[in-house]
Simulated assay, not measured.
Amino acid sequence: MKYRITVLPGDGIGPDVMAEGVKVLQAVGRKFGHSFKLEYELIGAVAIDKTESALPEETLAMCKRSDAVMLAAVGDPRYDDPKLPVHPEDGLLALRKGLGLFANLRPVRVFDELVNASTLKPEVLQGTDFVFVRELTGGVYFAKPKKEWVTSRGRKATDSMTYSEQEIERIIRVGFELARARKKRLVSVDKANVLKSSRLWRQVAVEVSRDYPDVALSHVLVDACAMQLIRTPAMFDVIVTENLFGDILSDEAAQLAGSMGMLPSASLSGIPVAGKRTFGLYEPIHGSAPTIAGKDIANPIATILSVAMMLRHSLALDSEAAAVEQAAESVLKHGYRTDDIMAPESTRVGTRQMGDLIAARI
């Protein structure tokens, strides 16, 4: 079978970790007899440097022609000045919107081998295995008015958190579908004691729950959820929430796994159903980390596990996805570690060697 994949290495360590993701994908092709046509394009700071746009039209068009998109990272300190007209992150937001990627899946699993990599006690972390479902194209990141202005009394700025019933319903359904295939527990996170948009969110969640009587729905305020992620992370199975809350909470949860270098993600344009293909973009949740770019020390596992998610959700290749996940776990069991997850008596490896080790076990 032949598949067409758009590859967006991006900025900083993006090309470093993407090379290892591609390496593992090619190993899957050899093992299972698939052909992956990889087409590379620009996004982020490298795109601004060459085209003055963080998301060139050619990039978006190529993504739309693909079966799936692999993205590494965007961001460059040269563009940190908020007064600049364009920023690398603009490309990522525009890509999500342009491809209709409304559902962001971020699995958080604490590998037994890394239970001591976090700053939390091992007994707190054991058994942690849940999925964040983050709404990705609405809320405060996209809603208008969004502006900054000067008054006679000083500067002001505003951002709006706006959600429609339809936007909420479709992301809640993603959460229910995933929960139905797992432990049948869904936590909906909001701030319904303060925010009007959260009150609508909760109302719609309750309405949708009637279609899923086999799934237990509970509601947790975002601040309480942040606390429970640290106190009792193993209590969660599937967590669904809006854009801003999901962004913050999933980064917090990355530390449960020991490093942001361990967490993959999928951004989907539809509701994932086992055995069916859903278009999506796949990326590690970490940033571009420009200070370590090209030094062969970045952890590529999040990118490699993102490849597994792509195989499962966009290409409907579940056995191949499982092979990648098992290969990554095998390498960890044998004691190989990059700098961010080093432990006593482990073997330190670089970005490229970690990719080699995982690819060899496919």
Rank of each mutant, 00 (worst) to 15 (best):
T137P: 03
T128H: 05
A143S: 15
E135N: 02
K147S: 15
L136E: 15
D129Q: 06
F130E: 07
F142Y: 13
A157V: 08
R155K: 07
P145H: 10
G138T: 06
F132W: 15
K144W: 11
V131R: 12
K147D: 11
S152E: 14
R155A: 02
Q126D: 04
D129I: 03
S152A: 14
S152R: 14
Y141V: 01
V133T: 08
D129M: 05
P145G: 09
G139T: 03
K146T: 10
K144A: 14
R155M: 02
F130G: 09
R134C: 02
K144D: 11
A157K: 10
Q126L: 12
G154V: 00
R134Y: 09
P145Q: 09
V140T: 13
V140K: 12
W149C: 13
K156V: 10
T151W: 04
A157S: 09
E148Q: 10
V133D: 15
T151M: 00
A143L: 09
G127F: 05
E135Q: 02
F130Y: 04
V131S: 12
T158V: 14
F142G: 13
V150G: 00
K146Y: 13
P145V: 03
K156Y: 12
E135A: 00
P145N: 11
R155S: 07
A157N: 11
K147F: 00
V140H: 02
V131K: 15
A143K: 04
V133H: 10
K147H: 11
E148A: 12
R153A: 09
D129S: 05
G139K: 08
D129P: 03
K156L: 12
T137G: 02
Y141A: 03
T137I: 11
F142W: 15
V140F: 06
D129Y: 02
V140D: 00
K156W: 02
R134H: 05
W149V: 10
R155L: 04
T137M: 04
V150D: 00
V150E: 07
R155E: 06
Q126E: 08
V140G: 03
G127R: 07
K156I: 08
A143Q: 10
E135C: 06
K144L: 14
G127A: 07
T137C: 10
T158C: 15
G154T: 00
R155W: 09
G154W: 02
K144H: 15
G139I: 01
F130K: 02
K147A: 15
F130I: 03
R134D: 04
W149Y: 14
T151I: 01
T158R: 06
T158K: 01
V131P: 11
V140P: 11
W149T: 15
K147V: 00
F130D: 09
T151K: 08
F142M: 14
L136I: 11
A157F: 05
A157C: 09
S152P: 11
G138Q: 08
W149P: 10
R155N: 06
Q126Y: 15
P145M: 04
K147W: 14
F130Q: 03
V150P: 00
V140N: 04
G138W: 04
R153G: 06
R134A: 07
E148R: 03
Y141L: 09
F132N: 15
G139R: 03
R155F: 03
F130W: 01
G127M: 04
E148M: 10
Y141K: 07
T128R: 08
E148H: 01
T137Y: 03
W149F: 14
V131N: 06
T158Q: 14
R134M: 01
K156F: 05
Y141P: 06
D129A: 03
